[in-house]
Structure formats: C-alpha cells, structure tokens
Design a protein around this nucleic acid. Structure first.
Length: 487
RNA sequence: GCAGCUGUAGCUCAGUUGGUUAGAGCGCUUGGUUGUGGACCAAGAGGUCGGUGGUUCGAUCCCACCCAGCUGUACCA
C-alpha cells in the first residue's frame, strides 16, 4: 500500500475544543451570571453571530489586509462579518428598534465572538463574552449599578471578597491633565493614554519610557514613545501613582478634570450604599486603551495567583471591564446617545475559577454496566432502567471488548463504578458493584512498586480477598442505594 | 505588524563531527485469565528528522529562502 498524504487532525490556530469540567463549569457560571443580571433588571437579548460588515465597524476584509481583525465573507449582496464584540450589535439593535424600546433600555447578552487576529496565551480567536449595558441613561446611577453588578456577579461566581476588586476611574481625569499640559495633538494624546493603560504590565519605569523617548522590550524590539518633556511625563506619572482619591482632587483645577472628579463622587455615593462598597475603589491607572470611552471606566481584577501553562505562578489580572460611551448609535443616527456597560470575559473567568477550586466539581460520568453475554441484554436493561429512573447517569457498555477491555473503558471514562451482572449474579438475584473511584484513590497512594505487588499477592488468598474492599455483591434491591452511597 | 528564540513519533526530548535499517521515556493498540481497570511482563502500530532550493558521490545534519510555533511588543473598533 503506497503512503497517502494523511490529513492532520488539528484546529486552526487560535481555536480550541472545550470539554469536561471546563464545560460544566462554563454552563454553571453562565446560569449564575444570567440569573444575577436578571436580578438587576436586565432583559436578555440574542443577536445572530453574523452582522452586515459596515453595520458593526469600518473594517472590511480586503485583499491587502485579509487579517484585519474580523472574519468576513461576501454573500450575494453584502459583506457580512462574524461579530467581534456584543456592543456593536447592540448599537445596531437599538437603532433598528429605537421606537419600541423602553428608555433607558437595559439588556444583557451571552454570546460567542470572533476575532481574526494573532492569538496568544489565554487569547483565542473564538471566545464567549457576557455583556450588560444600559442605553439611554445619562444618570450616574447607571454607572454605579454596573460596578455593583460586576462585584456582585464575581462574588456569586464563588470568589471571596479579597480575591477581586472593581477599580474605577474616569476618562475625563487624564483628558483634563492633557489639557493642562497643553498636549493637543490627537495621536500624541492617544499614545499617552495607551502608555498609561500599561501600568500593570510594564510598570512605572516602562510607562515613563513610553511617555518619553520609548521603550525597549525583552526581545530587544523598540517601541516609540510619546516624546513628552520631563515635567509633563512627571505630572502624568504622579497622577497615575496617586491612589488616594482625596489627594487626586488637588492635582488639577482644569474644568474637564473637575467634571470627572464630580462624576466619580456621584458614583461613589451610590456604590457606598451597596454591600460591595469596599470592593469598588478608585484607581488612577485604570485608563483602558479603547478610544470610545467618554466618562467613567471600570475594570474587574482578580488578585489570586494562578498557574500558567508552564506551571509558573502569575497574577491573574483583568476578567472584565467597561465604561461609559456616549456615541453608541452615532453611526446610525448622527446623534449621540448615552450608554454605559460592562463586559465579562467568560473564558478567562472560567480558567481562574477552575484553577481556584479544582476537584470540587462533581463528576457526572456514567456508571457502566458490563456485558458478559449479548444474549442477556434484557437483564442488563433491567438494571439500566433502575438506575436511570433514579436519576443516576448510567449506560450499558456498547463496544465489543472483553470484560477486561470494558474495565479499561470504564476507567478511562472516569466512571465511578462498574456493575457486574453475569450468570452467577443473575442466578442468585444479586449484582456486583466494583467501586472504581475507591480503587483509583488507593492506587494513587501507592508509591513503591512493592506496595502494589503486595496487594496483588493477596490474590493468592483468592480473588474475593484481593478485590474485597473495592467490590461488593448485594441484592438487586440494594443496587440504587449502594451506587448512591459511592457517588 | 515588529523583534528574539525554536521546529526530529500523539507528547517530552536524545542523536547523527554529513554515510546504508532513525532512538528513548511516556502515551496508544493487542496479548499474558474466554468474570475484573490501575504503577507488572511481552508484542505491535506510529516518522518524506517543518517546506523548497543550493553545496556534496551522498543532507535530517552545512548554506539560503520560505513556512509554522512559542515568547515579548504593537494594535485591538
């Protein structure tokens, strides 16, 4: 047989399969989060994965730059794109249904989004976002609500109070400072804002470098800086490192800056009323790189260590954030309309929580009923019915392997138990239940080979002796109870 | 996009100062008891040594280019 080129079973880069614990956890978290969003008065919305490209952004995939961020396709009439976030579709939805919506309009949405860009550690090209937005409310109670909702949601997801923090600031602060420093060039402003946003990652020295000439990264690559004067960058750094809100107030008398302070004050008055008042804190280094924020900005940070792929401990960082953006539907209506919202990166949250409480998730794998003789299927089905009607996940082995192969199968499936119902049992009206979970635990404790062989030596005493502790034979009536005990 | 590093079995990696059949551990399949999983024993499957071109009698090894992956960085509506 000549060798054919075989297909390589693999996924495109940036995509991955999800299974097992992670999926179970995902479903649970989504339930918790949805429920909480409803509790806060948000209504659910689902929009399609595809939108007409020009409705959700200016980015069309073209020949020059096929990797321009979105996955796009041309159908009969239009370029259509997979959504890259849930905010742009919301804008389309609100504009399209403007007359029929309550104002303010509060909705939440859980959905997959796609980004056609380079993937990195923990960054995929397909992931799930959960968003809550309030559209049409200038009132700062909407912003305060978002912060409280974020904190409450994280706590309901199982995080302790010392493990997360909602950090909040206002875009107007840094904008006011930039006015003070007479920095008017738009791209320079943006460079400063982006530099400030990198405080967590590159540190004070890094931000300083980015504000002046530039920064050389670990690989030796050079990033050009904002080219500020010494005293200018010092003022920015001074602002970014002043965590005390009352001290911040005295940093500038600029009117935009004062407006920002005033807004933050109004928000804090409201968040202080919640049970999460100490979890919502001012932090000047929250800037957020995205251009469209116009007022308050928030970010949810986790403060426990997690292990990365290589097993090194790392601080987890942000799992979500948001802010006020008052130009939401400008693309469709030419008029501005206030909105504020948050977005939770579900996959990152799952990863964090999975790391935190690993083995707590209950296994839901099925009990496996072994097949001795295919002529006895009626007997096996009797047991199956018993188990399933008691809501116990279970199955009859559906392959063709020997009993040994069936054991291996059950082992690999992580089945809690195997049921042996052969001629002997059928005759005597009993079943044999082999507890795989216990056996696995016992074998995990064995470190030296001798320990293992010692157990096997017990075999000479007879199989019953050897298997005794992990295997029981009992009357059929007790089957369900015995299984329930070992689950 | 830019920069640095790395590509040998499913995974982690040896190795060949350029020479005929390419190595290990783990994993996988099967058997060792036609009624018993796991760290035991045995056998087996699995590789165009990332791709293309060049140098050479001969390249997995040397050279050039390309591609892919990783890491950092930039961008991220």
């Amino acid at each position: 047989m000549s060798k054919q080129k075989k297909l390589k079973p693999e996924l495109a880069t940036g995509f991955r399969d999800r299974k097992g614990n992670e999926l179970i956890l995902k479903d649970r978290l989504i339930e918790i989060i949805k429920r909480n969003f409803q509790l806060y008065g948000f209504e659910p919305l689902e929009t399609p994965g595809f939108e007409i490209s020009e409705n959700i952004g200016k980015f069309l995939p073209d020949e020059d730059r096929p990797m321009s961020g979105v996955f796009g396709f041309k159908d009969e009439n239009d370029w259509i794109s997979l959504r890259y976030d849930l905010t742009a579709p919301l804008a389309r939805y609100v504009s399209e249904n403007f007359d029929n919506l309550s104002k303010p309009f509060k909705r939440y949405q859980v959905g997959t989004v796609w980004r056609n860009e380079k993937s990195g550690p923990g960054r995929y090209r397909e992931f799930t976002q959960i968003d809550a937005d309030t559209v049409g409310a200038k009132n700062f109670s909407a912003d305060a609500d978002m912060c409280v909702l974020l904190a409450d949601t994280l706590s309901k997801c199982g995080l302790n109070k010392n493990e997360y923090l909602i950090r909040i600031s206002n875009r107007k602060l840094i904008q006011g400072l930039l006015e003070d420093l007479k920095i008017t060039n738009v791209s320079k402003k943006l460079t400063v804002i982006r530099a400030a946003d990198k405080m967590d990652r590159v540190g004070i020295a890094g931000v300083k470098a980015l504000l002046s000439k530039g920064r050389k990264d670990k690989s030796g690559d050079f990033t050009k800086g904002a080219d500020l004067k010494e005293d200018q960058s010092e003022k920015i750094i001074n602002f970014l490192t002043t965590d005390n809100f009352s001290k911040i107030v005295s940093l500038s008398s600029n009117s935009t800056f004062k407006e920002g302070i005033d807004e933050l004050n109004k928000i804090f008055v409201l968040t202080k009323l919640s049970q999460f008042s100490d979890r919502i804190m001012f932090s000047p280094s929250i800037v957020r790189g995205i251009e469209y924020y116009t007022g308050a900005i928030f970010e949810a940070n986790l403060f426990f260590k997690v292990k990365n792929k290589k097993g090194e401990e790392v601080e987890f960082g942000s799992v979500g954030g948001g802010g006020r953006y008052d130009d939401l539907i400008a693309r469709f209506t030419q008029s501005t309309y206030p909105a504020t919202g948050i977005s939770i990166g579900l996959d990152r949250l799952i990863y964090a929580i999975d790391q935190k409480k690993k083995e707590k998730i209950k296994e839901d794998n099925p009990v496996v009923i072994c097949v001795f003789d295919k002529k006895q299927m009626a007997q096996y089905n009797k047991l199956l019915l018993l188990l399933r009607s008691s809501n116990i996940n279970s199955e009859i082995y559906c392959g063709d392997g020997s009993l040994k192969a069936q054991m291996k199968y059950a082992d690999k499936r992580n089945a809690p138990a195997v049921i042996l119902y052969g001629d002997n049992e059928i005759k005597s009206g009993t079943v044999t239940i082999k507890n795989l979970k216990l056996g696995k635990e016992a074998s995990a404790k064995i470190i030296k080979r001798e320990d293992w062989t010692n157990i096997n030596k017990a075999q000479e005493l007879g199989q019953k002796e050897r298997l005794g502790s992990f295997q029981i034979t009992t009357k059929i009536e007790n089957l369900v109870n015995e299984i329930k005990k070992l689950l």
